[in-house]
């Protein structure tokens, strides 16, 4: 697994996206500071609300663009036939890639969360203490961590099944982004449980990655998300067996 983590760490794109996300957060914190210089509570709320917009988008981009790419890269480079004939090139490599991806997702959440905290701390108006919002911020970060890991697993299984990175980005990214758009739609005002839009709003990991628990019919989502991940994992295994890759 160490070699897989090293492969992730050697990707320049990973660090570029991470750096861009933190620089963007720096700009936003600067503008928040300018606008809410005399309203420290608003500034703190915005800092603690990092995962709601910029943080969740940055994490999703990292997962979709960089982290799941390992599951289709062998096919893209034409190395799959060689790798699948190697002794540890099937099951073990697959599980190691999953493990390394989960580790990198946790690492990304930690870096982004810590980066936001440090940036917000140094950009904060005089007399404002980030510790006032530390508890809710840690809570939302932990929810993001759970959602991020779940989203990574689901997306990596999809990428493994379709064996095509851009297609996996579309399949996972489109419903993910749709959940943000629902808030600006007319239909959001009268959303009822088990409507299609309600399902797309809450059922695509977005709410969790945004650092919020789903409060409408929570029991259903406690069943839905594990079932979704297990179902996609089973599909991935089935496809690998079909291709004689497991």
């Amino acid at each position: 697994m160490t070699s897989e983590i090293k492969r992730y760490a050697a990707k320049a794109l990973y660090w570029m996206i991470l750096a861009t996300a933190l620089v963007a957060r720096g700009f936003l914190a600067y503008f928040d500071f300018k606008e809410f210089k005399y309203e420290p509570d608003v500034y703190l709320d915005l800092a603690a609300d990092y995962w709601n917009k910029a943080g969740s988008l940055s994490l999703a981009i990292l997962i979709l663009i960089v982290l799941i790419h390992q599951f289709s890269i062998d096919k893209e480079t034409g190395a799959d036939t060689v790798i699948h004939t190697a002794r540890y090139g099937r099951r073990r490599l697959y599980l190691e890639r999953l493990g390394a991806g989960v580790v990198m997702t946790v690492f990304s959440v930690a870096i982004l969360g810590l980066g936001n905290y440090v940036i917000s701390y140094f950009m904060s108006p005089v007399g404002v203490h980030m510790r006032n919002v530390l508890a809710p911020y840690i809570e939302s970060t932990l929810i993001t961590l759970v959602g991020g890991v779940g989203f990574f697993l689901a997306a990596s299984f999809v990428c493994d099944v379709v064996a095509n990175h851009p297609a996996a980005i579309c399949i996972c990214g489109f419903p993910y982004v749709f959940s943000y758009l629902v808030y600006s739609m007319e239909v959001n005002k009268n959303l009822k449980p088990f409507d299609l839009v309600w399902f797309l709003k809450y059922g695509t990991f977005t709410e969790l990655v945004r650092g919020r628990w789903i409060t409408t019919v929570p029991v259903f989502w406690c069943i839905w998300y594990p079932m979704l991940i297990i179902g996609l994992f089973a599909l991935s295994i089935y496809k690998r067996k079909e291709r004689k890759q497991l």
């Binding site: 379709v162 095509n164 851009p166 297609a167 980005i169 579309c170 399949i171």
Partner: peptide
């Protein structure tokens, strides 16, 4: 022949 094209069309 691109797989992502068909995914894009469906979406």
């Amino acid at each position: 022949s691109f797989r992502e094209t068909w995914v894009a069309y469906a979406l």
